[in-house]
């Protein structure tokens, strides 16, 4: 029996990964936050100071405090929330339509080489057309209504998910496929236990890129012709030279973009904790 314990020793050394280093972890987390927030704070301070000292005109570049005041003002009146909710609804509906079709098409093309041969060349051709270039066409065909906007956003969010789903499915390790063969996985188990988990990093990346693309397309759609939404708010403010309102709009886009991105990254971390990659 003593021999068995001797042999066990090097393995047990590994268990120290269960030890808890939480104070150090907390400190590390705080430092990471600090490193991220440093640059924006420096920029904001410089900006405020240059406005305060009169280096730049307030109409061209209002100071952060002015923008913040405007932000509060618009929030209290409820105007901001109303525009924001409309933009949110538009971008999400476009994203879900485009993303869903992309997931289905990406799976089809990934799983069946015949579907790839007949579908992929066309899709790749359409992909190279800039979204904003087809916008006039959409307006001509479907008018200024919600439909053309949703369609535009759907087109923009289709491609990142399509391309990455396809890549993810084709990226499955053939060595693991051999294992699935030896273990007699059913077709269904092959998909649920091997192909989908293996493609998951790519699919999530596609969703992340796609959300960004949807956001860009939304602004394009709203700038071109609309009577509500954050994009409209910006255009409207431009005609009246209300620069601070333009900034409020930009900040809303930036903030919401960052929040959605963080949300996806959170899911990435939870779903992909098995990954063993370079952490920097």
């Amino acid at each position: 029996m003593s021999k068995r314990e001797e042999v066990m020793l090097p393995i047990n050394l590994n268990t120290n990964r269960f030890l808890n280093f939480s104070p150090i972890k907390k400190y590390e987390k705080f430092m990471r936050f600090l490193r991220g927030i440093r640059l924006p704070i420096i920029i904001l301070l410089g900006w405020e100071l240059s406005g305060y000292l009169g280096f730049v005109s307030e109409t061209l570049l209002p100071r952060p405090t002015t923008v913040f005041q405007k932000f509060i003002e618009l929030s209290i009146s409820g105007e901001l929330l109303q525009h924001f909710l409309i933009s949110l609804r538009r971008s999400l509906s476009g994203f879900f339509v485009g993303g869903f079709i992309a997931l289905v098409a990406g799976d089809l093309v990934g799983f069946f080489s015949k579907a790839e041969q007949s579908l992929d060349p066309t899709v790749q051709m359409i992909r190279t057309i800039p979204t904003l270039a087809v916008l006039p066409l959409f307006i001509l065909w479907f008018g200024f209504g919600e439909f053309s906007k949703t369609l535009l956003i759907a087109k923009a969010s289709f491609f990142p998910i399509y391309v990455n789903t396809f890549l993810g499915i084709r990226g499955v390790d053939s060595k693991l496929l051999d294992v699935a063969k030896v273990l007699e996985f059913s077709k269904w188990k092959q998909i649920t236990k091997l192909i989908i988990p293996s493609a998951m990093p790519n699919i999530l990346l596609g969703i992340r890129l796609s959300l960004g693309a949807a956001w860009v397309a939304l602004v394009g759609a709203e700038l071109m012709g609309s009577s509500e939404g954050v994009g409209y708010m910006i255009v409207d403010a431009r005609t009246f030279s209300q620069t601070s309102v333009i900034f409020v709009g930009i900040i809303i886009f930036a903030l919401f973009g960052k929040i959605t991105d963080s949300l996806i990254r959170y899911f990435e971390k939870r779903l992909l904790k098995w990954r063993d990659n370079f952490q920097g």
Binding site: K193, P197, M200, W274, D276
Partner: peptide
């Protein structure tokens, strides 16, 4: 090689 499924 062990060829384990890394996500399990």
């Amino acid at each position: 090689e062990p060829r384990l499924f890394p996500w399990m």
